[in-house]
Design a protein around this nucleic acid. Structure first.
Lengths: 250, 250
DNA sequence: TGCCAGGAAGTTGTCAGACAACCGGGCTCC
DNA sequence: GGAGCCCGGTTGTCTGACAACTTCCTGGCA
């Protein structure tokens, strides 16, 4: 019976799991800050009361998650930018590009749904906040500086405008992965400033749809924005999503 | 400058990295299929020409990503429904009933988008997995037992069928909050078994839409399922979401 | 025949110790 | 003052061993 295979609960937790959870917690709580060095393996082994092999497996997990980086001969350090995508992306790796595509795909799904809800729920205060970040991006464009942070805040403000705390928390959580993909739009080499300006035009359109309280239009613009952002870094998303085509009917 | 950061990546790759990438590739290419057992550690050590410790660290990474599950004394197996443990740290306390509406709202957004993508991407193996959990819920219904776990797995399997690892991780991430809301459907007191059966009918409809490869229908059924689920616990969601109305046009 | 207890073999989990590869700082020597 | 070398510290890898656990087979029993 297959039910036997599914029975995976109620097993004794492995030591390496416990250690990696504990370390992850320490990092999450800021007890070891980004860039700082973790205690050396031998010390960790002592404090946790396990062997070095267990510590190494736990750290291997954290490395896989991108929360920790190790340098042979130097030590293990809490990652500055967790889950660094851009390195592998610029190396033109296959899997990294695929990963980026998946992120854009998820962004398209989540952000379009959120834009729709925000257009339906936004209050005057929300509009003020969103507009503030829109202007911040305008400034960044004018100065030629990096507006990716304002970009993050812009989308976060839209999420907040849904007045659904879970939505907002979700976007905050995903922010780590999303911001990496957003930063690409602002730091494209070759000084082509037309691309950020194009993105900003999309932002403005999305903003106006939210202000006007047009859910369908907001959804379409949000989806279009993500798809264009993907295209700007050379990724072509399947464009035949229901939400999009149907929105044009409305 | 970005070039400085790139310099960091020109380091000799570690053995455990290479091994985990190689294994990951074998799994991705289907050389070892979901549910199948990996070669035992000693054999892997032999074929890769490294020690068992390296193999163990590589597998620790795959476990962290949820691509592999290990059972002491039995072996290492490619995960049926890849489970990601990455996001375990965001566990608020159990959602108050007031927050339940927000959770259902988020579910409606996420699950409908995922159902749509799954209907477009599902492969035969995905269908098999999903059907398996559908039957598990059938059994639970027949026995009068709790099928909420199979319910979780059902939706997780649909997320996996999108073949977007971030989607899958997102659903796993949200799982804690969602499963709470799903359990309500299975453990309604008053022995009214009509409600779970109604939910199961919705599951079946959704499943068939995914199997048939009808994205719009899958989106509508997923959305409807969540809305009905909410109604079954006394929460009325706003039903005028774009996705829904427009889907009826298609 | 059917089945159940129990052992044997196989597999993962953990430990301990050792050495290689490498980094960083301090020291010497020019 | 600066360049090069050395040395302690740290991670990376190897080896061998035992513990904990699962699976399967086998022999005895009803």
């Amino acid at each position: 019976m297959l039910a036997n295979e599914l029975k995976r609960s109620s097993r004794r937790p492995r030591l390496s799991e416990e250690v990696s959870i504990a370390l992850e917690g320490q990092i999450a709580r800021g007890e070891v800050k980004p860039g700082e060095q973790l205690p050396v393996e031998k010390v960790l082994a002592g404090t946790f009361g396990v062997s070095r092999a267990v510590i190494r497996e736990a750290i291997a997990r954290l490395k896989a998650d991108g929360r920790v980086e190790t340098r042979q001969g130097a030590g293990a350090f809490v990652a500055l930018v967790p889950k660094s995508l851009n390195f592998r992306f610029w190396q033109g790796d296959g899997p990294a590009l695929a990963e980026l595509r998946e992120i854009f795909e998820l962004r398209a799904m989540v952000e379009s749904a959120i834009a729709e809800l925000a257009a339906r729920r936004r209050l005057p205060a929300d509009i003020t906040t969103i507009r503030c970040f829109l202007h911040a991006m305008d400034d960044a464009l004018a100065n030629g500086s990096d507006g990716s942070e304002a970009d993050d805040d812009f989308h976060l403000a839209i999420a907040a405008a849904t007045h659904n705390s879970y939505t907002r928390r979700l976007v905050e959580f995903l922010g780590r992965h999303f911001s990496e993909s957003r930063r690409l739009a602002w730091t494209m080499p070759d000084g082509n400033s037309a691309l950020p300006q194009q993105a900003q035009a999309e932002h403005r359109r999305l903003f106006e749809a939210v202000v006007a309280g047009k859910p369908r239009r907001a959804r379409r613009y949000a989806h279009e924005h993500v798809r264009c952002a993907a295209r700007r870094v050379g990724i072509e998303l399947a464009g035949d999503l229901v939400s999009e085509r149907s929105a044009e009917l409305g």
